[in-house]
């Protein structure tokens, strides 16, 4: 037997269900809100139609009286909070990144001798030059440009910055 309120449908046995409009909320926010409930509930997200997502929450402790409306309302507020935080973080991304980098960099300071000594520089890797930094401009771009550049790029690790394009040269 089910019982309906504005916020949710109670399915009995400590289980509630409600639908949300998926076009209003980013999927990450939906996952984030669901995650907050993992300690208290079993959570199921199910797509009902293109823009409708059904949320099912079942309390983990059977004997606990489940206030379905409160749980649904808390989930919906959390979903709105996660969505709004995400938007604010996107809007202020440059400022947040600048402050964070400055704060952590200022607090940690530059690496000391001990840090440098601990870096993974072995005899086999000490002279690697994956970005072609030690190469002359001519070696890298002018003579056999495509081969040299290709070698440098091929050798670069996946997370390294891409090699710069050669500068424009005016005769």
């Amino acid at each position: 037997m089910s019982e309906s309120t504005d916020l949710a449908v109670s399915l009995g046995a400590g289980t509630i269900s409600f639908e949300i409009d998926g076009s209003l909320y980013p999927q990450d926010a939906l996952y984030g809100a669901a995650y907050v409930f993992l300690d208290r509930c079993y959570v199921l997200l199910d797509r009902v139609s293109d823009n409708r997502v059904r949320v099912l929450l079942r309390g983990k402790t059977k004997d606990a009286a489940l206030d379905g409306d409160a749980l649904a309302g808390e989930f919906q507020n959390e979903l709105l909070g996660q969505t709004w935080r995400r938007k604010i973080a996107e809007d202020n991304r440059s400022l947040i990144e600048a402050i964070t980098a400055r704060a952590l960099g200022g607090a940690a300071g530059p690496p000391g001798l001990d840090d440098l000594l601990e870096m993974d520089v072995g005899s086999e890797t000490a002279f690697d030059d994956p970005l072609g930094i030690a190469m002359s401009w001519e070696e890298k771009y002018a003579k056999g440009k495509s081969d040299a550049a290709k070698t440098a790029k091929d050798a670069a690790p996946a997370d390294a910055a891409p090699a710069e394009d050669p500068p424009e040269v005016t005769p």
């Binding site: 935080r85 604010i88 973080a89 202020n92 400022l95 947040i96 402050i99 964070t100 704060a103 952590l104």
Partner: peptide, 9 residues
Amino acid sequence: VLASIRETQ
């Protein structure tokens, strides 16, 4: 740090 920057809140 991230949680206490006003512009994230």
